[in-house]
């Protein structure tokens, strides 16, 4: 049987991979995918915690956490929609999706 620690480690690794993608990749689309991975890592931990730490009252998983997961998924979708719209607008104006090309604003 997998334990809670298994899930948490896997979720931590997923978060780290996402974070690594955000920090190291230069393509905004890929950075965005990395951010999605991070959010999903949080979802995984949340569901794991909710399943493993049963409520003492009725011995059921804490569904509040799953509601939060639901909200996170919704928000992530909205964020993707707005983000991609901004990226498309940027691409139309500048023909690039690379972070290094974002240099209009300088010190």
């Amino acid at each position: 049987m997998p334990t809670l620690a298994h899930y948490l480690v896997v979720s931590g690794l997923l978060f780290a991979i996402g974070l690594g993608g955000v920090l190291l990749r230069r393509n905004i689309l890929i950075i965005f995918m990395g951010l999605e991975l991070m959010l999903n890592a949080a979802n995984l931990s949340l569901v794991a915690f909710s399943r493993f730490n049963l409520l003492p009252a009725d011995g059921m998983p804490n569904y509040n956490a799953q509601v939060l997961v639901f909200f996170i998924i919704t928000v992530a979708a909205a964020e993707v929609a707005v983000g991609l719209a901004i990226i498309v607008a940027l691409f139309r104006a500048k023909q690039t999706t690379h972070v290094e090309d974002l240099n209009t604003l300088k010190f």
């Binding site: 955000v22 905004i28 950075i31 951010l35 964020e79 707005v82 983000g83 901004i86 940027l90 500048k94």
Partner: peptide, 19 residues
């Protein structure tokens, strides 16, 4: 647009940390 993109990426990053 660039400001929007940067704000977007860092805002989303902070959301990731937050959750």
């Amino acid at each position: 647009l660039e400001a929007g993109t940067k704000f977007l990426i860092l805002g989303a990053l902070s959301t990731g940390f937050f959750v």
